[in-house]
Amino acid sequence: MSCIERIEYEILLQGASFRESAEYIKKHFPEWYEVEPGYRLFDAHLIGVPPVVLGIDGDDVIFPYTKPCRGTFLLRANGPDEVAKLRARTKKKR
């Protein structure tokens, strides 16, 4: 079981492509960041096509999660530490 499956999350999109997930985040969340694939979030390395877009809403992180057989899910999970880590990065996009 992956680390992501051990946390509480809400599924925002299911069966979307990585591109659709990135567009959804940019459209619905005013604060978003670009990271490289492999970025460590909730103790897991993110899978995706560079750049991977992550959104922030309050203390929640919105992020794509890819499973080989089931495609990409867009998830929302509470993570104030992850939010702080993202905000500390210099690549703030919006």
Partner: peptide
Amino acid sequence: HNDGGVSYAGTLSAI
């Protein structure tokens, strides 16, 4: 053979 596979390849291209 699907979008997931492209995502894994994209990940390897970066790491």
